[in-house]
Amino acid sequence: MKHQEALLTLTLRLGDNPLVLGHRLGEWCSKAPILEEDLALTNMALDMIGRAEVLLRYAALIEGKNHTEDDLAYKRGERKFYNHLIVEQPNGNFAFTIARQLYVSLYEFLYYSELMNSKDETLSAIAHKAIKEIKYHLKHASDWTIRLGDGTDERHHKMQEAINELWMFTGELFESDEVDEQMSELGIAPYPADLIGKWKTELIDILSEAKLSLPEESYMQTGSRNGIHTEYLGYILADMQYLQRAYPNAKW
């Protein structure tokens, strides 16, 4: 695979994740259990949209077709999106949102800690900025996991249910293909499969403090690395891209 093509795929994957998860978290606006939490979730959404913006801008530059980050966000078809399936899953109840965030933020924390040392200066700079936000997202998610898991019976039950239901989307975080091989050999990005050990160890620490159990190994969902998604992404894109599709090139 050509270097440029691999770097573009990597950057699109990195950019699409926060774009879609930011959109999901934004859906909590005005609906969170308490005003302060409403602000927390939408703050995180903004962190993610901001990260998506710089990553997709870089992707557009690598692509070299005079596209902007907005073109990539609003005019790309579903099959060309490479975000992990877990980030497009609906918010569900609050426990579900927290479980999704815990899985993702713990992964991102490990991934971006290594991405800071990337030989690609742009990715390294983006990682240095993002890691501070990610640390906060992880703290927020793990604090809530512990409070819900180690709470009343109902809280514990809902939290465990969320942890179990989302488990099948976690295998995908560590899938590694030709792009990852090429990028990690050049010292540009970490090799996702290498992160699973640490991820599990740290996850077990958090879950045991929360008095929750790690789900049993089971069938893992897959597809996003090839642009195959669950039914939910299409609805997100319809929502997100409606304006640019209905009124092409409309300006703010």
Binding site: E36, D143, R147
Partner: peptide, 12 residues
Amino acid sequence: VHGSDKEIAMQN
């Protein structure tokens, strides 16, 4: 702010 305990209050 509201907060269920001091950590959550700090985040809020």
